[in-house]
Amino acid sequence: MNAPEEDCSNLDDVLFVAGVDYLSGWREADAAARQMNEVLAGLGLDTRLVRAVPHVGADGDPVVWLRPESARLIARALGVAE
């Protein structure tokens, strides 16, 4: 889902809609997530723990997910957080 954590009631985020090209969006997200995961591995991060995950939004837009802890670890590896 792409809804904020406190709002998981938006059915548009969980239902497929006829006529929306989800596959193209997912393919784009997958390519971006793979590229991000290569960068993360290059930074020395364990990609079993820190990884980008492809997703597609309700309207077919490509989305790449990170877990909050993954985002924090990436920020630390880039030297922008403690």
Rank of each mutant, 00 (worst) to 15 (best):
M1N: 06
A3H: 07
A3W: 00
P4D: 02
P4N: 03
E5Y: 09
E5W: 11
E6L: 10
E6F: 11
D7I: 10
S9P: 02
S9D: 13
N10E: 05
L11E: 14
L15Y: 14
F16R: 14
F16S: 13
A18L: 13
A18G: 11
D21P: 06
D21N: 15
Y22C: 13
L23E: 15
S24W: 01
G25A: 00
E28N: 02
A29I: 06
A29R: 04
A29S: 15
D30C: 09
A31S: 11
A31P: 02
A32F: 07
A33I: 11
R34M: 09
Q35W: 08
N37A: 04
N37L: 08
N37E: 03
V39N: 07
V39P: 03
L40S: 03
A41K: 15
A41P: 03
A41T: 01
A41I: 04
G42P: 07
G42Y: 03
G42D: 05
L43C: 03
L43G: 02
L43H: 04
L43W: 01
G44P: 11
T47W: 12
T47C: 10
T47R: 08
V50L: 10
V50C: 02
V50G: 08
V50E: 07
R51Q: 09
R51V: 03
A52S: 15
A52P: 12
A52G: 11
A52C: 15
V53E: 10
P54M: 02
H55L: 10
H55A: 15
V56N: 09
V56M: 10
A58I: 03
A58S: 14
G60F: 13
G60V: 13
G60H: 09
D61W: 01
P62C: 06
V63M: 04
V63A: 06
V64Y: 10
V64C: 02
V64S: 04
L66D: 04
L66T: 05
P68M: 00
E69G: 05
E69F: 06
E69P: 00
S70T: 03
R72I: 05
I74T: 00
R76Q: 14
L78G: 13
L78E: 08
V80T: 10
A81K: 05
A81P: 06
A81E: 11
E82I: 03
E82A: 14
